[in-house]
Amino acid sequence: MIILFPICLLFCFRVVKQYKRAVILRFGRIRSVSPAGPGIIWVVPCTDNIELIDLRTQSFNLLPQEILTKDLVTITVDAVVYFHVLKPLNCLLNVQSYKHATELLAVTILRNILGQYTLTDLLTNRESISQAVRKEIDKGTMEWGIEVERVEIKDVILPYELQKALAAEAEGTRIAKAKIIEAEGEIKAAENLRDASKVILEKPQTMLLRYLQTLNYIAAQQSTTIFFPFPIDIPDQQK
């Protein structure tokens, strides 16, 4: 015993890293020093059992879920959840596997909440919906000592037929807007022509200038020979 005692002392000291905490169970019961660490901790071999809990932020991807929205559209949604351990004792004593339990709870709450929104709300209010999902998951994991930091909806996959219908609807909307803009341009052009006709009526000599400008424009576009009667009736300046 005298020879082996110094060697046994080496097994009585354990080092716990900064980002972990040690939950020590002696004969199956939690020791009062738990959670222990970081640094060097004292344990008794053969009687103490150590469970190390990681306090860093952890994440997991939710498998793509087929969800029926409020307006009866079937979509596929996948998301990612970020969480960390807030109370090491609770996550060890109150739940068998805190990470797996959090993942199952996140899937259930995600399906329930997204089913309350229409497709349009889901596509336009993704950030607010993610916050609502995070709060609901956090309520369920509070007793496990888990705090949910973020829930991000990565992608919303629509059926192919629905994508074609939305594309056709968007194209029709763009065509309608283009026709409205074209009609507004016609109205403005008509108003400008009306104002121009008033000016021509007041000073008829402007018609001759406009006529010559039109001939110049036509000649500049392509090689063209234009014949017009000469002399031209020049409006009287005194009229």
Score class of each variant (00 low, 15 high):
residue 229 P to C: 00
residue 129 I to R: 02
residue 187 I to N: 01
residue 165 A to I: 01
residue 106 A to W: 08
residue 100 H to R: 13
residue 186 E to D: 01
residue 133 V to E: 00
residue 193 L to D: 14
residue 25 L to R: 14
residue 118 T to L: 03
residue 69 T to L: 12
residue 138 D to C: 05
residue 35 P to I: 04
residue 192 N to V: 01
residue 221 Q to G: 02
residue 66 E to K: 09
residue 191 E to T: 07
residue 165 A to F: 01
residue 101 A to I: 11
residue 114 L to C: 15
residue 141 T to N: 01
residue 93 L to Q: 10
residue 193 L to K: 15
residue 128 S to L: 10
residue 207 M to A: 15
residue 121 D to P: 00
residue 31 R to S: 09
residue 140 G to E: 13
residue 23 V to Q: 08
residue 49 N to T: 10
residue 19 Y to N: 14
residue 170 A to H: 08
residue 110 L to E: 05
residue 178 A to M: 03
residue 187 I to M: 02
residue 14 R to Q: 11
residue 149 E to S: 15
residue 191 E to P: 00
residue 51 E to V: 13
residue 94 N to A: 11
residue 214 T to I: 08
residue 225 T to R: 04
residue 215 L to G: 09
residue 84 H to D: 10
residue 210 R to Y: 15
residue 127 E to Y: 09
residue 194 R to G: 14
residue 164 K to W: 04
residue 176 A to P: 00
residue 233 D to I: 10
residue 90 N to L: 14
residue 54 D to W: 05
residue 44 V to S: 05
residue 195 D to R: 13
residue 110 L to N: 01
residue 217 Y to R: 14
residue 69 T to A: 08
residue 48 D to P: 09
residue 146 I to D: 04
residue 16 V to D: 05
residue 40 I to R: 04
residue 141 T to R: 01
residue 191 E to A: 12
residue 17 K to R: 06
residue 3 I to W: 07
residue 89 L to C: 06
residue 220 A to M: 08
residue 106 A to R: 13
residue 168 A to S: 08
residue 188 K to S: 04
residue 1 M to F: 12
residue 94 N to Y: 08
residue 218 I to F: 11
residue 229 P to Q: 10
residue 6 P to R: 06
residue 46 C to E: 00
residue 86 L to H: 12
residue 80 V to G: 03
residue 47 T to M: 07
residue 89 L to K: 11
residue 75 I to M: 10
residue 203 K to Q: 05
residue 23 V to E: 06
residue 171 E to I: 00
residue 51 E to W: 03
residue 73 V to G: 00
residue 4 L to F: 14
residue 118 T to P: 00
residue 225 T to K: 06
residue 79 A to V: 03
residue 29 R to T: 12
residue 155 D to H: 12
residue 80 V to M: 09
residue 32 S to G: 01
residue 1 M to N: 07
residue 172 G to R: 13
residue 219 A to Q: 13
residue 103 E to N: 12
residue 152 E to Q: 09
residue 151 V to K: 08
residue 52 L to H: 02
residue 68 L to H: 06
residue 221 Q to C: 08
residue 119 L to H: 06
residue 211 Y to L: 13
residue 156 V to C: 09
residue 174 R to M: 06
